[in-house]
């Protein structure tokens, strides 16, 4: 098990190095931050000074070497925009996104599993048809549209919820609801399909022959077997939010890592872009590891 985690960590570290190299050079292609940060009529002297200050005068390869050297000392560079360590800026945003992801995915998982399992128990029944109808709509509705309609209805017309920003618990409701809908529809469909297979299996027949009542048949015998494909999709959807729910965070003015990344790219704030990518990469690595461990926990036949 330790060996497995070690192997995975090394493989992920190698991809991370590649990613950092790629993003470092690609982001420089977007242009020189000097033009963005200084007024159009800034003197050449001011421009040179700005460049000197942020190390932009050196050849790219020298800048890269310096960046790597700093990285090895856990220095992730300074945000040009905010004039403070890039990592501080990123971790601040990441905390918001992580909370958003954890809350949303917990709600999605519980709701999708319970409703999907019950739908699978009587395939083609009224409950199954209703959930299939709504989950299909949920899985296919574009989130930017839901977000805007949500704001129009609940914030502008009904005035129940704030339009955007953070501060109170009410500010969380619209972003979470919008982020909830698509993964919920998708995971519910996967749970349903996987449960139909599990519930028609031979071991469920045995359970019925033992006289086990329907509820434990669904949630004890069926569910644990049906969970493996579900976990894969949960991980995939959670990764989507962790990477920054860019659209939703932007619409709701939510200070998460997705909005931060978009802003950093637009502002050519290179250190922040790189730090944000590293943080979300590590987060996704940890999540994938947790998923693999969950596999082994759920299915005794899987051993690493």
């Amino acid at each position: 098990m330790k060996k497995f985690i070690g192997k995975r960590a090394i493989a992920s570290a190698i991809s991370l190095v590649g990613l950092v190299i790629l993003v470092f050079f690609l982001s420089r292609l977007t242009g020189d931050p000097t033009d963005l940060y200084l007024p159009i009529d800034a003197t050449q002297e001011m421009r040179d000074k700005f460049r000197e200050l942020h190390g932009l005068n050196d050849p790219l390869i020298v800048q890269f070497g310096r960046y790597v050297w700093d990285l090895l000392h856990f220095d992730f560079g300074e945000s040009i925009r905010q004039a403070r360590p890039a990592m501080d800026v990123v971790l601040e945003g990441f905390r918001w996104t992580l909370t958003l992801a954890v809350v949303t995915m917990t709600l999605v998982t519980v709701a999708a599993i319970v409703i999907g399992s019950l739908a699978a128990f009587k395939v083609g029944g009224v409950f199954d048809r209703i959930t299939s109808f709504f989950s299909l709509i949920g899985a296919s509705a574009p989130d930017f549209w839901i977000a805007i309609v949500g704001i129009v209805i609940f914030a502008v017309q009904l005035r129940w919820l704030p339009t955007s920003g953070t501060g109170t618990i009410w500010h969380w409701i619209l972003p979470i609801s919008v982020l909830f809908i698509r993964p919920f529809g998708l995971i519910l469909q996967v749970v349903r399909g996987s449960m139909i297979t599990a519930l028609s299996s031979a071991y469920v027949k045995t359970a019925k022959a033992k006289g086990v009542p329907p509820r434990p048949i669904i949630f004890v015998h069926g569910l644990r077997n049906a969970m493996l494909p579900v976990i894969t999709v949960i991980g995939d959807q959670a990764a989507g939010i962790l990477n920054g729910a860019v659209v939703v965070e932007t619409i709701f003015g939510f200070p998460g890592i997705g909005k931060l990344m978009i802003d950093a790219i637009l502002q050519r704030d290179f250190a922040v872009i790189l730090a944000a990518i590293m943080v979300s990469a590590v987060a996704i690595f940890i999540m994938n590891l947790l998923i693999d461990l969950a596999y082994a926990m759920l299915d005794p036949r899987i051993r690493y």
Partner: peptide
């Protein structure tokens, strides 16, 4: 109440009829 208690059943392929997890 009768299933398993008064009337029990075993099947052809015990590997698939036992819950693997």
């Amino acid at each position: 109440e009768l299933n398993g208690c008064r009337i029990a059943m075993i099947f052809q392929d015990p590997l698939s009829h036992l819950n693997p997890v």
